[in-house]
Design a protein around this nucleic acid. Structure first.
Lengths: 231, 231
DNA sequence: ATACTCACATGATATATATCATGCATGAAT
DNA sequence: ATTCATGCATGATATATATCATGTGAGTAT
């Protein structure tokens, strides 16, 4: 399924993150010795909820979705992961299990770092430890926004939030083509697929956005923002 | 409003936490020199969302609610805080702001530790840093449960989850009296107050629980668990 | 004693959202 | 070429949930 390789051309792969800029040459070398690269095809899973947490991952190419699976096989899509982002897993220093699943939306390349090596670096470098705590807290803050969006906003506000998220945080453009299905987009908004599609059509009819298949164009960001606010 | 005191009888106050057991005598003394104790009356606020994060707090006596405030002044109650728990704030190492509010539900005593002193301890003691990361991650995992409960469960399941949370995590008893108002309980379940009251009555009529005012008795834990599961 | 809050409670109604059924494309398999 | 599966779309309907109006009782002030 996946190609394993220790690609030396990618020696800098996990180090592009600002998080890693506080490490010494020795520490980077140590991490380099305890990492390996894997290629994933669309639809393949890199972390499975409930599985053992043995590595953290840095995405070097492609796109992933991070999502929670509930007992009824309904997914709640937490966020997308794009290069060059880290995905650790909150089971670190807790129960060494994964608490969400991560799967590839495109053909992607991932750099895995052994969790024990990562722990060792945190132990050695207190600056890095503090930066990592900041990184965890930033994610934490984003979840609060998501909680408010999903529990206190109506359908229109949630769809607006999803479109804003994709445009601003992921694609950084008013035009984007996404491999996310309508079901994925609905899971990102905690809506039924049909409901999401309906609101999307409303937004299109009102002229705020345009889309054709999976190509989207945000025509009026302010209007979307306003809907996100009032809903 | 509040009585400030440096109570030497409470010299051990923030150190009861398992988190602090990895610290040396010198480190504990250092923290002790940078902490102070405050008494709060019911309804008073210790952290205000948006305010500056200058201290972390350890609750030594009483009960607090931690909640998010949205633009429409609706609250989402995240969790309760009881002795002896720590409340940091995810703004630490991010933007030095509070991202939730914390107010007293009873007359309470809080121990504040200067955030810079806390940071210094993390910097000095890597074991402590790792334990703290574990502490943050455990909270993170709980938020995932809350996300699933609030977005993927119906009213019955959410009320059941709230009752289970109070009985199991907070009061550790099938019988408890709580200072939480019906509105608080609804905010904890992301429901309208009236909806919460109705489900509560249903549960009472079916014999699963009993309550009178704010005194609750969980008569059938298994039934509640089942409702939490299937809903 | 009377008025006045305020939290809790409950019925009636409105609204938001999900579900069900169906159709329509597109691409893959036979 | 025909069938088949799959994702997108849309209308009709059912259900879940919020809102509105109102009532009741306990505590407090006048």
């Amino acid at each position: 399924m996946s190609q394993y390789s220790k690609d030396l051309n990618c020696v800098n792969c996990p180090f592009k993150l600002s998080l890693f800029q506080h490490l010494s040459k020795e520490e980077l070398t140590y991490l380099d010795e305890n990492r390996y690269e894997v290629h994933f095809n669309t639809g393949e899973t890199i972390f499975k909820q409930g599985g053992a947490l043995t590595h953290i991952a840095s995405l070097t190419r492609g796109l992933f979705k991070i999502y929670l699976e509930d007992k009824n096989k309904n997914n709640l899509l937490l966020r997308l992961l794009k290069p060059t982002e880290l995905v650790g897993g909150p089971g670190f220093m807790v129960d060494s299990r994964h608490h969400f699943s991560v799967t590839a939306l495109e053909n992607s390349t991932v750099c895995f770092v052994d969790i024990k090596a990562f722990e060792e670096i945190i132990r050695q470098n207190s600056d890095f430890a503090l930066q990592f705590i900041g990184y965890l807290n930033a994610i934490h803050i984003n979840i609060y926004d998501k909680l408010i969006s999903l529990t206190h906003k109506n359908m229109h506000g949630r769809v607006a939030d999803t479109l804003i998220y994709l445009s601003k945080n992921i694609y950084e453009s008013s035009n984007f083509e996404t491999p996310l299905s309508r079901q994925d987009l609905a899971d990102l908004s905690s809506l039924a697929k049909e409901s999401f599609i309906r609101i999307l059509k409303e937004f299109k009819d009102s002229g705020m956005i345009h889309f054709e298949g999976n190509s989207f164009h945000i025509k009026n960001h302010e209007a979307l923002q306003k809907i996100s606010q009032i809903s």
